[in-house]
Computed example of a mutant assay.
Amino acid sequence: MSADLAHIRQVMAEADCLHDEAEVEAAIRAVARQINQQLAERNPVVFCVMNGGLIFSGKLATLLDFPLEMSYLHASRYRNQTSGGELFWKAKPEVSFIDRDVLIIDDILDEGHTLSAIIDFCHHAGAAAVHTAVLVDKAHQRKARPGMKATYTGLVCADRYVFGYGMDYKGYWRNAPGIFAVKGL
């Protein structure tokens, strides 16, 4: 079933811009500075969480000024829906990180169920340390683990349904040039 493109366009036309492109790019540079200071000598293996982390990972990686191995993993709870379900592994990491620092890059820390499962997976697979970088942390008290925070966070946003810079609305608008909230959600 194909999406109703008129509806998808209307969502963008009516969306509230929470963070414009300049703010998002500045946040990415700030995260990169922190990672450069803290992980440059740790030889981390860097994993992009697909599909949401793709844009953030790509932009962030070009700002990291140390050699690193990069790969991806694909785990989702949303599968183009607006609410999460059971964790589904589409592709597990193929690079070994036994006794290595691991940096997981994702688009958003919402409730954190997906990120929490990925962190546990990395620890069980022998990672020496697991670090997380998210572009957006959604401000609410429904985290999977009490007090859950990413190691590196670009922006904090309101508890609304957001899209842009990798985050999607029903599979669309990952390419939106800013962080937008769906009207009424």
Rank of each mutant, 00 (worst) to 15 (best):
L5K: 11
L5N: 12
A6M: 05
R9H: 13
M12C: 02
M12Q: 13
M12H: 13
A13P: 04
A13K: 15
A15F: 03
C17M: 08
L18M: 10
E25V: 07
A26V: 00
A27I: 01
A32W: 12
R33M: 11
A40P: 09
V45D: 04
V45W: 05
G53N: 06
F56T: 01
G58T: 11
A61N: 08
M70S: 12
R77M: 10
Y78Q: 03
R79I: 04
Q81M: 09
S83F: 12
G85H: 10
L87I: 10
A91E: 10
K92M: 14
E94L: 12
V95K: 09
V95E: 13
D99P: 03
D101A: 06
D106M: 03
D107E: 15
H113N: 08
H113A: 04
H113D: 04
L115G: 08
A117Q: 15
I118D: 10
I119V: 08
C122Y: 06
H124W: 09
A129Q: 05
A129N: 11
H131A: 07
D137I: 00
D137Q: 08
R142Y: 10
A150G: 09
T153F: 10
C157I: 02
A158H: 06
R160Q: 12
Y161D: 05
G164W: 09
G164R: 01
Y169N: 03
K170N: 14
N175S: 10
P177I: 03
A181N: 01
G184I: 01
